[in-house]
Design a protein around this nucleic acid. Structure first.
Length: 572
RNA sequence: CGGAGCGUGGCGCAGUUUGGUAGCGCGCCAGUUUUGGGAACUGGAAGUCGCAGGUUCGAAUCCUGUCGCUCCGACCA
């Protein structure tokens, strides 16, 4: 491609809409333009990079034996009703109406569609296993789109769905996808770490997320430096908090006045009660009914864990008025001592706790000498606390670390939830009808593209890995007169590189050298071949990797040098 | 949904407090001089100041409403 013939609107200044570096560079390098919040147009350069990511995904999915299909984005709501997700996923579902006022939904994902297909077409264990995938636009009514392509209302996702006849086979399907994902991200030049992931309300199933470490990521990952343990914070566990829970011999619980005390910290400060000696009492409304959650004072609730215990994603913190109605006191003086008829979920860390302090359900009063198991009717003990940095790893005993990351992929063992709901059954060798065992596997393609930029850039611009670069080589011609020596050589090299199958762009714009150099660095092409009168007079052209030292060589050596460099800098 | 902020040529911004001829930088067009790291000079084009009402002799500026965008929050009692 000749630069003058394409459209690469680079920008010296950063548009106000961008906050994080990758978003800024997407705009500045002329890769995308925003239509409105959460909706972007891919420009020629951005589209080329996107296609390269897609093709890597496609090649690896094919290599893993998955079959490419293409499903409708517009879907009938009844299949969503059948799986139950018309209700449980209603927040993210876009609804549209046709001219007859019939309702449709825009697919945020495609379990219902693919399972319907398999239910119709697959009847025998002899046809299994099978794994279908597609690369398609998804629609999600995100609560708040942000960071450019990172969280958008419309985005491109690769989603795959496996169907197996038995557990062993399903595990093999899962492992094949897991391995394919590792290869995909590696080939994209991304450092993506697989971590154990929360499985939400489905519970029990096996799941990993592929995380790209980044300060701007929206997820938190707990990991052990040994590499033996890594988990999403929603799922992570540890050997427990550093401080042990008090288990003092104590007399009966006793009420005392605590005027003005509203927080754990207040109580610690004013009454010298360490946070680990306190019981934190939270009130949630789960499917319209109140529940009490107990944690130790120095712990924080991990809501994903609560969701797993409650078995529903429909829950929220109670408002002050609701709290007063349930416990008769305002936040700051809440406790579960003597409470009956309301489910109490207590964190395991509180087990055996004695000599504890908690709210008395009477404003400005607390109880001391609380023995948790003696004084509180606990409906269910559970792991509800959020792991904190420096707690010890359950695998290695080493201190855990926490860092932010971008989720680029997710592999999930689904089980039979959808196959049962949508009738995807098959006959086994005994003639018995069984639901097939499913797995689903997603990669955020557009997000992966932006994650590459987030991870690969410097102050001058993007630094594309050769595998996903829109063009691998940029020939910068500093004299664009058609008959000039410079331009003739540039044209020759351009043709030769193309003939070798290299993606090359020739900057033939009649612009000043500074602009061309800055633009090629901003756009992030891995290799620049600089041809100018000055160096050509000395018999040399410049081979300049985006990162690394410039190599001078003769015009005749340039092609070989460039090819050698590309060969040596392949990714994955 | 709650809170905060912002909407002024393509982009980045000033002007709004205190109403009185719509400005600056970048970019764009033309010309001259430049010519290896985002050139200089001269001359241009381009804006119903988000939109709709209202107040006023007069509104980018004040009032009301509305739309859009950005950020934070929607665990920690």
């Amino acid at each position: 491609m000749r630069w003058s013939q394409t459209f690469i609107p680079t920008m010296k200044e950063t548009p106000a809409e961008a906050e994080i570096i990758s978003h800024k560079l997407l705009l500045r390098a002329g890769l995308v333009r925003r239509l409105t919040g959460g909706l972007y147009t891919f420009l020629p350069l951005g589209l080329r990079a996107l296609r390269k990511v897609e093709n890597i995904v496609r090649e690896e999915m094919n290599r893993a034996g998955a079959l490419e299909v293409f499903m409708p984005a517009l879907q009938p709501p009844d299949i969503w009703a059948r799986s139950g997700r018309l209700e449980t996923a209603k927040e993210v579902l876009f609804h549209v109406k046709d001219r007859a006022q019939k309702e449709w939904v825009l697919g945020p994902t495609h379990e219902e569609v693919i399972t319907t297909l398999v239910a119709d077409e697959f009847n025998s264990y002899r046809q299994l296993p099978v794994n279908f995938y597609q690369i398609q636009t998804k629609f999600r009514d995100e609560i708040r789109p942000r960071f450019g392509l990172m969280r958008a209302k419309e985005f491109i996702m690769k989603d795959a769905y496996s169907f197996d006849a038995d557990d062993e086979s399903a595990n093999a399907s899962y492992q094949r996808m897991y391995d394919a994902y590792a290869r995909i991200f590696k080939r994209c030049g991304l450092r993506a770490i697989p971590v154990q992931a929360d499985t939400g309300v489905m519970g029990g199933a096996h799941s990993h997320e592929f995380m790209v470490p980044a300060e701007t990521g929206e997820n938190e990952v707990v990991y052990c430096e040994s590499g033996d343990y890594a988990a999403n914070i929603e799922k992570a566990t540890s050997q427990g908090p550093a401080a042990t829970t008090p288990s003092d011999d104590c007399g009966p619980a006793e009420k005392f006045e605590t005027p003005g005390v509203k927080t754990i910290e207040d109580l610690a400060k004013s009454f010298d009660v360490a946070a680990e000696r306190q019981i934190k009492t939270l009130i949630y409304i789960a499917e319209d009914k109140p529940v009490i959650v107990l944690l130790r004072g120095d712990d924080q609730l991990e809501e994903a864990k609560l969701g797993g215990v409650l078995g529903t994603a429909t829950f929220r913190t109670a408002g002050d008025a609701e709290i007063v109605k349930v416990l008769g006191a305002k936040p700051g003086s809440l406790g579960a001592v003597g409470i009956e008829g309301i489910p109490v979920y207590a964190d395991e860390v509180l087990r055996g706790g004695s000599g504890m302090v908690t709210g008395a359900n009477d404003d400005d009063h607390h109880l001391r000498n609380v023995n948790v198991e003696r004084d509180i009717v606990v409906s269910e003990w559970a792991n509800l606390r959020k792991v904190q940095a420096c707690e010890l790893c359950i695998e290695t005993g080493q201190p855990l670390k926490i860092r932010r990351a971008i989720e680029v992929g997710h592999v999930f063992k689904l089980g039979t939830k959808y196959s049962e709901a949508l009738g995807a059954t098959f006959l086994d060798e005994n003639g018995k009808s069984l639901p097939s065992i499913m797995g689903c596997y997603g990669i955020g393609v557009t997000r992966t593209l932006q994650a590459v930029i987030e991870q690969c850039h410097d102050e001058s611009g993007v630094i594309w890995p050769t595998s996903v670069a829109p063009y691998e080589v940029c020939i910068t011609a500093l004299d664009v007169e058609p008959e000039s020596k410079v331009m003739k050589l540039a044209n020759r090299l351009y043709d030769e590189l193309q003939a070798k199958g290299v993606d090359v762009i020739l900057d033939d714009r009649p612009a000043r050298p500074g602009i061309k150099f800055k633009d090629s660095e901003l756009a992030g092409f891995p290799l620049r071949i600089g041809i100018g009168e000055r160096s050509l007079a000395k018999g040399s052209v410049e081979i300049k990797p985006r990162v690394g030292e410039m190599i001078l060589c003769s015009p005749d050596e340039a092609l070989g040098q460039a090819l050698d460099w590309l060969e040596a800098n392949q990714v994955g």
